[in-house]
Structure formats: C-alpha cells, structure tokens
Design a protein around this nucleic acid. Structure first.
Lengths: 339, 339
DNA sequence: CTGAAAGCGCTAACAT
DNA sequence: ATGTTAGCGCTTTCAG
C-alpha cells in the first residue's frame, strides 16, 4: 500500500502537488501531472479514503436507506443510484430497514451519524418527524425517491394521476364495475404511497359519474400472493363481480391474473386487469400497466445529490421533481364482454 | 458534531480514556465509564468513522460484491449479511457488478483498494484469477458465498447433491423421462454454479440405469420467462415429452408450471415439476423444491468475516463450509399418470 | 505553479 | 486505571 509520500518522492514533487494532481483541485502543470500519474501507476497508488475523508471532510460515499432490498422496484432504484454514483467515483453504503424497530433506531442514532457518508438518499420511506430532523441535522444533502417527505427534495411520480390514468383506460374501454386492489395500511409504516392511488382511482370514477363501491375495494401488500388473495375475493363475489381490476402494483396485478385463471375466468374476456410499474414480469404476463422507470429515478436522485455535493453551497436548492410515467397497453385489458 | 475532546472535557478525563470507554479496549473503571457515557449522551457524540478508521486502521465496514441485486437469492443473502453486520456495528458498502465490464474493472482497480472496507464478501461471483489475487492482496478477510472460488473460504450448498436429491425424488416417484432446465452458459461469466446441478442430475439418472438424453435438456437464464420458454420446448416435443422437469432454480420451475398450464397440461398429473431454492413464490405455486436458505448463508458468511476481524491474527483460517438444504415436497410432483 | 506545515479526530503505545 | 503524546495519510491554507 503505497502512500502519497512515496508517490511524491518518486515523482520528485511534494505531497501537496500529488494531492492536487490527483484531485483536480488547484493548478498543476501538465508536465508535473504526467510525472505524478506515472508514479501513481508505477506504485499502484490508490488514495486512502479514511485519510482523505478525515482531512477534507468529504468521504465520497453516499448512504442509501431502503425499506428492503428484495422487491423489484427497490432493486431497480438501487441499481440506478449505484450506477450514477459509481460513475462519479462514489461508493454506496446501504442501510436496509428490514430488520425491524431497533434496526431503525440504531440507524438514526448511530450509523448515519458517523460521518461515513456525504449525503443520504432515502427510498420510499415514511419517516417520522424526528427522523427527518435527524437527517436534516446532518447538514448534508438529502434526497428522497418516492415521497412525500416534508422538507426534503423528493423525486416521485404523480400517483394520483397514475391511478387516474389506469382507471380512465378502463373506463374508456367501457368498464363501470372497476375494482381496486390498493395498498395495505400496515405497509404505510414502512414506505409510502399515502393513498394517492386510491384517490386517483376514486376521482376518475367520480368524473365518470360512478359512485365508489366499498365492495370493489380490497387491500393487499404489494406481492403476487397478496394480489391473488384480494382478486379471489373480488372475483368470487356472486353479485358484484367486477369486469375490471386496477391493482396498485404489477405484482398484485399478476396475482389477480393468476386468480382469474384459477377461477376459470379469461383475461381480458371476463375481466380486465391493469397494474402499475412495468415490472420485469409484466410483459411476460401480457399485463397492461402504467409504467414507471425506477432505475432512472435512482439515477436521477443520485445525480441531484452529486450536483449538491459539487456545488458546495446551498445554491440550487433542490425542488421536488415529478418523474415520467406512461400507459402501456398489453393483452390484459379489453372492452367488457357484452354479457 | 461534538468531538472526542469535548466529551473528554465534559467528563473530566482524557481523550484516551473516552476512546477506551467507548471502544471497550483497555480498562476503564465503572465510575469513569459512567461519566463518559453521560457526557456522550449529553453531547450526542458519535465517533467519526474516518478519524477512527485512519487512526486504527479499521473501518468497521465491509464490502459486499454482488452480480446484481434484483434476484431473490441475492437479495436474501444481502439481507442476511447486512443483519449480521449491523448487529456488530458494521456498515455494509455495496458493490454491484451489473454495470458491465468497466464497472468491474474500476471495482478491482480502484474502489476496493481505497481502504474503505475491512473485509470483502463476494456473492456468487466467478472471479478471474487476477481479480482473486487483487482481493487476496488486500490482506483482508475474504469470504465467498456460492463458490467455488479457488483459494477463498467459501460457503455453499453441495449443488451436485442438491440436484441428485431433486432427481431422485422424481425417480422414486416412478419417472423415467425427466428433463432438466439447466443454467445458461452465458451466465457463467457472471456468477457460478459451474454445471454442478447438471452433474448431479446426470449421475442420479446414471445410478438409475438411465442414459442422459440431450432432447431432455434445455438451458435457460434463471428467470421465470427463461424457464417458460425452455419448458414449452420440452413439453411441446411430440415424441419425447418428459413426465417430469427438474429446473435448476425455482424461478425457472415456476416458468415451467406456467408453460404446462398454457399447453393444457396439468401439474402434476401430466407433468411433475421440481425446482431449487424455495423462492418466496414457491409455496404460492405449490412448487416442490430443494430448499436452501440464502438469508442464513449471508448471515453466516458475515459472521465468519466478523470472527476473522475479531481474532486479528490468522488463526482459525476459514475452511469451506457446506450449508444445509432440504427437500420440500408440495403439489407439483407426483407419480406419473399411467398413460 | 509548487512546497512547507498545520491540522482533520481519533487510537495506541508508553508512561505513570 | 488514566494521562501524554505521537502519529494515521491525507488536504489545504499560506508563502513564495
């Protein structure tokens, strides 16, 4: 492990110059820069992140806090963020909340306070006020994907409009008995959609002159299994059977498709199904959906952080940004069959 | 951000004593320890990981290198490892290879050399010799999950035996036309199973006096979609239709179940299907499988690393360890229907 | 454009 | 059991 002084000696310059040549801060003549680079290559020198971090106060590392890693959406956001960070030479340290309450507490009272990270990115977290103030108190850039997080620049899709779009697609096809598989309120403690998709669905129905029907609303936990169970209830109802189901995530929508199949109902002939996400399995199941692009969301969020870090001062205070979404019509939605 | 000297002043002791009281290294009287703890609480002091890391040479951080994050197995290993590390106060920095060749190169030539981590854990990586020597050259504990990685302590299941067990289950039920959906050779560059499951399958067949039949072997990429395509080929074959399929992963097995359904074949009446993993969806699909426990694998691997780090010297050189697996029989396997 | 030197905040001998 | 002190390997004024 060569140190900067060995590089300096070999290059015949001072350690300060090596530091400048390597970091790009300050001016170095092309000639010395070359000498330094040669010495670096010769010795396989790599800066010590701890020493550099201590001296400069910058770690070149960002913390990412995520509810759990094993859900397609989160994984995509994570990959996108990692890609952007890596490109700028930043490391990513991962804080995963799946461990429960004391995981969470130690995170906010200890791990995040160690100055190991220059900034933090939260993904779909519903943080409590004191947790937000802890993070803000770090004095470091903080960006959230999938808010809202009051006081924090947030990157998200407009969930109300997404749900409205999905519902309107169904309405335009002629459906009137449209069921919703919505989020499980338990989940709200972990991460948030805050009922926006429910609101979008309801307002689209209202605009079409349809009254919301509680029998056409079930909650599930964002998994295929959860969607399956909810859809069975919905589709098994002897009087109120919906002709279409809008599920608040593709995984639940896939569960609904499987439930329909098991009941002998054909999709979309007997029931249309639409989801949200454009999950990696959506195309496979011919699922119509409102696509979002979580990988881009992660990339973009990380880029905002990187910009903040580069600017240094508080210019360019980040604003909330709305990310794109898009209706993708596949084989799971059609006009209702005239009975 | 209080510093150690403020804590020392408030507690009326030296910084060295504070350091000792907090780290547990060295002796501190109960009385002073209490004073220190009070001062720490009062000032909300948290040690600076960079300063501590520079002074001690230990970062309390381990690097985890993973092919990609969005696959159930990897996510589970990651969560297990994270849980073990967190419990010991360690951070986890994630290096994800999904970015392609230059991601990989920068990882081994730069990121991992910055002394940001005390140890590295690799998950299902097929590393090239020079990459292994880079890692070994770090002089830090190195443990792999899912090898083999020559020269590196590895934690894995016995893939040959796992495959043999699955195949024998099918044989014992009376099947003789047993197909295999195996790994895609392309994938071998990213991560490794190295054909062990193929070998286990073949040797179980051989022991039963059955010759391997190339028409009963297809490769896929570990996804549901891949398994679906492969199974369609297998099950559509007009002369050689297998009565059972062993898929080298549950995701491919689920694809096979869906393919059978789409062909109008009943599982298990017309075709039995078995996988490997006990994926979160396996129970939902009634899939028989050879379960493995990736979360435990991650936990155990992290624990080995933590032990290495605690011991300091090279005693207790880690050995390869075999992790448990278990046949789980559900609804997707049965005797072949007497035609 | 470059060098000297003073830290960054902590740990680990070494004393006592 | 506790204090003193010398670094850990860099970055960053400040001079020149």
């Amino acid at each position: 492990m060569a140190s900067i002084s060995e590089v300096a000696r070999l290059a015949g310059v001072s350690t300060a110059t090596v530091s400048r040549a390597l970091s790009g801060n300050g001016n170095v003549s092309p000639a010395t820069r070359t000498k330094v680079e040669r010495a670096v290559a010769e010795l396989d020198y790599v800066v010590s992140s701890t020493a550099s971090g201590l001296a400069s106060g910058r770690t070149r590392n960002v913390g990412v806090v995520i509810p759990f890693v094993n859900r397609w959406y989160f994984g995509q956001v994570l990959e996108g963020a990692q890609a952007a960070l890596r490109q700028s030479g930043y490391d990513l340290t991962l804080y995963n909340l799946s461990g429960g309450a004391d995981t969470r507490q130690s995170l906010f009272e200890d791990f995040l306070l160690r100055r190991r990270v220059d900034a933090v990115l939260t993904i779909c977290l519903k943080l409590r006020p004191h947790e937000i103030s802890t993070l803000l108190g770090l004095g470091k850039p903080l960006v959230a994907v999938g808010g809202p997080l009051p006081g924090v620049p947030t990157l998200s899709i407009d969930d109300v409009e997404v749900a409205r779009l999905a519902t309107e697609h169904l309405l335009a096809l002629g459906h009137t008995r449209i069921a919703l598989i919505g989020e499980n309120p338990e989940a709200e403690h972990e991460f948030s959609l805050s009922g926006d998709r429910l609101r979008g669905y309801q307002s689209a129905l209202a605009d079409a002159g349809l009254a919301p029907n509680p029998e056409l609303f079930h909650r599930a936990d964002y998994t295929i299994q959860g969607g399956y169970v909810a859809a069975k209830q919905l589709l098994g109802n002897p009087r109120q059977r919906p002709t279409a189901i809008f599920a608040a995530s593709d995984e639940m929508a896939i569960g609904a498709i499987l439930a329909a199949r098991d009941l002998g109902l054909a999709v979309p002939h007997d029931v249309s199904v639409i989801g949200v996400d454009d999950h990696e399995l959506a195309a496979f199941f011919g699922l119509s959906t409102v696509a979002q692009f979580p990988r881009d969301q992660g990339w973009r969020a990380a880029s905002m952080i990187l910009d903040d870090l580069a600017e240094g001062d508080d210019r360019g205070r980040d604003q909330d940004v709305r990310m794109p979404y898009e209706l993708v019509v596949r084989a799971s939605t059609a006009r209702p069959s005239t009975l």
